[in-house]
Simulated scan of single mutants.
Amino acid sequence: MPVVLTLSALVIRDAGGRLLLVRKRGTSKFMQPGGKLEPGETFAAAAVRELEEELGIRVPEPELQDLGRWYGPAANEAGTVIDAGIFACGLPQPPVAAAEIEELLWLHPAEAAGRTDLAPLLTEHILPLLAESETWAEHG
C-alpha cells in the first residue's frame, strides 16, 4: 500500500502563458508551488500558506480558483502517491524563492515536451488540463 501525501498545488501563469514552477532543495523535479496540508487545514488554506512561505506572496483565499483534485505518483518520493487540491491564482508581485525552494522556473507549456525534470502532476494532469481549456477557448 503506497504512502499518500495530501497537498495543495498552485497553477500560476504570467501574461505570456508561462507557468511558474519550483524545485525544492535536494530534489530534481520542477513542480507547482505548494505543499502538504497541516492537521485540520483545508486545501485552500494550505495553498495560501504555502504560497507565502515558498514565494513570499500573499493571495487571499477567495482569490483562488479551484481546479479540482488529482491523485497520482509523487515526483520525488518513490512508492508515494499524492492527493492534490489544485488552485489557480494571479501573481500580485514577483515571486522570491524562500523556505525549501532552491530554484524558480518560468516554463511555457509548449516547452514542456521531452523534459524529464517535470513532476507527474504537471505532465499528467495540469498540462493536459491547460491544453484542453485553451482548445475550448479557441473554439468557443
Rank of each mutant, 00 (worst) to 15 (best):
F30T: 03
Q32V: 15
P33A: 12
G34D: 13
G35P: 11
G35I: 09
K36A: 09
K36Y: 03
L37G: 06
L37Y: 05
G40K: 09
E41P: 12
T42S: 15
F43S: 09
F43M: 07
A44Y: 06
A45P: 05
A46F: 11
A46L: 12
R49H: 11
R49Q: 06
E50G: 04
E50H: 09
E53W: 06
E54W: 03
L55Y: 10
I57C: 07
I57K: 09
P60L: 00
E61D: 05
E61F: 02
E63M: 06
L64Q: 00
Q65A: 14
D66K: 01
G68Y: 06
R69A: 02
Y71R: 12
Y71F: 14
G72L: 10
P73R: 15
A74W: 03
N76W: 10
E77Y: 06
E77F: 09
G79Q: 08
T80W: 04
V81D: 10
V81W: 10
I82V: 15
I82P: 04
D83E: 08
D83V: 10
A84D: 07
A84W: 10
A84P: 06
I86H: 02
I86Y: 02
I86V: 15
F87P: 05
A88N: 01
G90K: 07
G90E: 12
L91Q: 12
P92M: 03
V96C: 11
V96T: 15
A97H: 01
A98R: 15
A98V: 00
A98M: 11
A98S: 04
A99Y: 11
A99R: 13
E100C: 00
E100G: 02
W106L: 07
A112I: 01
G114F: 05
T116P: 01
P120F: 14
P120K: 14
T123G: 15
T123K: 14
H125I: 07
L129T: 06
L130E: 11
L130M: 10
